[in-house]
Design a protein around this nucleic acid. Structure first.
Lengths: 193, 193
DNA sequence: TAGCGAGTAGAGCGTTCGTTCTAGTAGGGT
DNA sequence: ACCCTACTAGAACGAACGCTCTACTCGCTA
């Protein structure tokens, strides 16, 4: 069935892997569960990902990377002022996290932490994702007139604070950490004007 | 051997669990590996923790909580100015993380994320740990003259930013995220004077 | 219409998981 | 000297793990 490209088996597998690992991490996600969720068979999984779970995990992280990059780019473009845009971004994250029943946190963090120092390929994929997101914030700040070095440093803390706040919000099932992160980051950014 | 309290089997088990889960998360840590690392037997593990892995995980989180609370309290007491104290704290975290070969990140985060929304008891234990750490920062800020509400809000972001930066530093194997977090947090705190 | 190859299907490999179970050892109180 | 309790020891359970394997379906090209 080479031409039956209704949805794409490979894409379905990657998508299911990303969502499952986002919710329960890499280690707790079995290939059997993935194949069921994706309406595919174990044979198909190994057909598309002969490298096994590691290769599949890397593809899932890359998928989450693209997904969040899209979200971040849209959120940053919607508002002109960079500080306000970051606050709006944090609020949107809080809203989406709450609407998912506090289940859908960062699609990369959990897997990244589980693999840090143990599976270099996965660690590198996660590092690349974070770098991409940082780049989007960096761009926004530079186009708003911030000096190169200030923008680069701020981009680090903006992404890392959002990551930490998202994690905290998920664990405490509260929007407060993300709302505070947005307000404080805006104040920090504005202090460099 | 009730009186043979040389080191304490129970304590050794909890300590080993905490360190293993800090490095590879809860799901990737088996009870067999724990008992070997702790120089105990599986029987002993179930003797002290009849609730199984869940009860043991909660104890390990509480242990990590106490451990980091001690670190945080000492770091905050060493320097009088709260902003400088937070910067010093971030730098110390970076140093210790590097010295561990980028292996020893936050002893709670990975397990917390793996269990969020799936194992309520573990999630609550992690939430309590974060609340305790926040309380220490809150205290420091209030005793330095910050208003109640400002201190409470800042404490949230200080802990969450440190958490995010520690995660980022571990994944990218670089001290930069933590150093930047320390500098930016100091600037943010000082902006409220 | 024959055959090639992409993709599906699922049984089964060895291993490890969390957990349970039964025995056995060793101090302290009486 | 006695037993009781605290603790250790490790075999064994069913289930699930990641992964391999062979057989099969079926659209496309020649």
């Amino acid at each position: 069935m080479r031409t039956k490209h209704e949805i794409g088996t490979r894409e379905r597998i990657v998508q299911a892997t990303s969502r499952l690992m986002q919710r329960q991490g890499c280690e707790a996600t079995g290939l059997k569960q993935i194949s069921q969720e994706a309406h595919a068979t174990l044979g198909s999984v190994y057909h598309f990902f002969p490298g096994g779970k590691t290769e599949l995990t890397i593809a899932a992280i890359a998928y989450g990377d693209r997904e969040f990059s899209e979200f971040l780019r849209a959120a940053l473009e919607r508002v002109d002022d960079p500080a306000e845009a970051i606050t709006a971004c944090a609020d949107r994250l809080a809203e989406e996290l709450r609407d998912s029943g506090w289940l859908d946190g960062c699609p990369v963090t959990t897997t990244a932490l589980e693999s840090a120092g143990r599976v270099p390929d996965i660690q590198r994929a996660a590092e690349q994702a974070f770098a991409n997101w940082r780049g989007l914030v960096d761009d926004k700040l530079r186009r708003s007139g911030f000096p190169e070095d200030v923008a680069r440093d701020l981009a680090h803390t903006v992404i890392n604070t959002l990551e930490g706040a998202e994690m905290s919000a998920q664990v405490s099932q509260s929007e407060t950490p993300l709302h505070l992160a947005g307000r404080h980051l805006a104040r920090l950014v504005n202090s460099y004007r």
